[in-house]
């Protein structure tokens, strides 16, 4: 059965009151990005199938909350992204991720290049108002070249999707329900049992310091890291001035 490919047509909608022309089939996030408007996100990464789990990209579509990464554009919709209410929701999502895991930025190899931290900076978060949950989580250093620190995992599934769809390996998946949900490896129970290779795209997919190459920590001095001076998403908002793009670690 082959689907009929329809020619793309133009769709016009508004984003925070600004009229945006998009292509049908685009998501709200893609359409916004195409015109230089950044919508914060964590679980979404360009090129991967949208997943809609982190909820950082929550916007309202005709007043109803929806994730921008999974919602297709449609003619005439009114999308709101930068209201005080939506900012407050996003901020709370980021705080939830901080208190759910154990994020010790002061000694994390990813610090300065971490998207969770960068969103905290961008949103001006100085301390979560939520209580820390201090879960006990393991570190898997069994692989010769790559480690998983589950303390930092935010369950975004970027490694899951990248390993499956880009590397063709299915080295990662989630098991467990609710607050017991956690990243597992496949097959076997340790990272060294998988076919993961240090050059896999899945290793770079991690937005935080949960999956790291060994012996490569702290390579970039403080002051030259991705988000030391420029907020995450700035490249989208000011496409001319900046060349730094997220997802391209130095």
């Amino acid at each position: 059965m082959s689907e009929v490919i329809l020619p793309t047509s133009e769709v016009i909608f508004t984003l925070d009151g600004v009229t945006v022309t998009a292509q049908s089939g685009q998501t709200v996030m893609e359409a916004a990005e195409a015109v230089g408007i950044y919508i914060p996100r964590l679980c979404h990464k360009e090129g991967l199938e949208p997943y809609g789990s982190c909820r950082v990209c929550t916007v309202t579509v005709n007043g109803r909350p929806a994730s921008a990464c999974t919602t297709p554009v449609a003619d005439g919709i009114a999308v709101e992204s930068e209201s005080d209410q939506i900012r407050a929701w996003r901020r709370t999502v980021i705080e939830m991720l901080f208190v759910e895991g154990n994020h010790f930025c002061m000694f994390c190899e990813k610090s300065g290049n971490c998207e969770l931290q960068a969103l905290g900076y961008r949103m001006g978060i100085v301390a979560p108002r939520l209580p820390y949950l201090w879960p006990k989580r393991p570190v898997d250093a069994s692989h010769p070249d790559v480690l998983i620190d589950h303390n930092r995992c935010i369950l975004c599934a970027r490694c899951v999707r990248t390993s499956r769809d880009v590397d063709g390996k299915q080295a990662f998946a989630f098991v467990g329900r609710g607050s017991r949900r956690h990243l597992a490896v496949n097959p076997g129970s340790r990272l060294c049992d998988t076919k993961l290779d240090v050059t896999d795209a899945a290793v770079d997919a991690c937005p935080v310091g949960a999956i790291l190459r060994k012996r490569r920590g702290f390579e970039t001095p403080i002051g030259r890291r991705l988000y030391d001076h420029v907020p995450i998403g700035t490249g989208v908002e000011q496409p001319v001035e900046l060349t730094i793009r997220e997802g391209s670690p130095s």
């Binding site: 809609g52 909820r55 017991r180």
Partner: peptide, 22 residues
């Protein structure tokens, strides 16, 4: 709800634990 949340999305997975705690 804490027990039955599937854990896929952040607000339900973490938020209900926080609501119950408080």
């Amino acid at each position: 709800f804490v027990e039955e949340s599937c854990g896929y999305c952040t607000p339900c997975r973490v938020g209900n634990v926080l609501l119950r705690e408080r």
